[in-house]
Simulated scan of single mutants.
Amino acid sequence: MESSHDTLLNVTLLNCFLVCVVVVIHNEALMRLSSFLPKMRRSHHFRLTFAVLGCLTAHALQVWIFATAFYFMHNAQGWGQLVGNFNGSLLDSVYFSFTTFTTLGYGDIEALGALRYLTGIEALTGFLLITWSASFLFLEMQRYWPTR
């Protein structure tokens, strides 16, 4: 049987790995958007719409990464579980991940055990990545929207 020290170490390592993966994905998405947008020969409205859709796509991918971790942790022994309005499906894990990533947190699904740590780190990570996207989009708006 695994000790609580080993479980905490494993949870910490998994959380760090997931945060690194989603941050790298987000950085890559914003860097690619940043280099691609100036090359687009479309209106500034189209470029900004494309940038928003690119950010949303990156966030959706990040949510699915966390959701996959929730799903496997819930179904594995010793990682905790998700309870409440949760049937154990991957789609319920995605729903829980979306509400956690956006810090909306309806509360209809609750994490127990080691899963609580991933829930907290996802909310913090989601908040930071969403604000990073907002900053990026603000700078793109300043670049492409005509001055008044």
Rank of each mutant, 00 (worst) to 15 (best):
N75Q: 15
A76M: 07
A76R: 13
W79N: 05
W79Q: 08
G80I: 05
Q81F: 08
L82H: 10
L82S: 05
V83L: 11
G84L: 04
G84E: 03
G84Q: 05
N85Q: 12
N85S: 03
F86A: 06
F86Q: 04
N87D: 10
N87A: 01
N87R: 04
N87F: 02
S89E: 06
L91Q: 05
L91H: 07
L91C: 04
D92G: 12
D92R: 11
S93V: 11
Y95V: 04
Y95I: 03
F96V: 00
F96Y: 12
F96K: 00
S97M: 00
F98Q: 02
F98A: 08
T100P: 00
T100E: 00
F101P: 00
F101V: 08
T102R: 05
T103K: 09
T103P: 00
L104H: 09
D108K: 10
D108N: 06
I109S: 00
E110L: 15
A111E: 04
A111S: 13
L112G: 02
L112E: 03
G113S: 07
G113C: 12
G113H: 10
A114P: 01
A114Q: 04
A114F: 08
R116F: 09
R116T: 14
Y117E: 07
Y117K: 02
T119L: 11
T119N: 12
I121Y: 03
E122Q: 15
E122P: 09
A123N: 04
T125F: 06
T125A: 11
T125H: 06
T125M: 04
T125Y: 03
G126W: 03
F127R: 09
L128K: 05
L128T: 13
L128F: 14
L129F: 06
I130S: 08
I130D: 01
I130Q: 05
T131M: 14
S133F: 14
S133R: 14
S133C: 14
S133E: 05
A134D: 03
A134Y: 08
A134C: 09
A134S: 11
A134R: 12
S135V: 13
F136P: 04
L137S: 07
L137F: 09
L137C: 12
F138T: 13
F138A: 04
F138H: 14
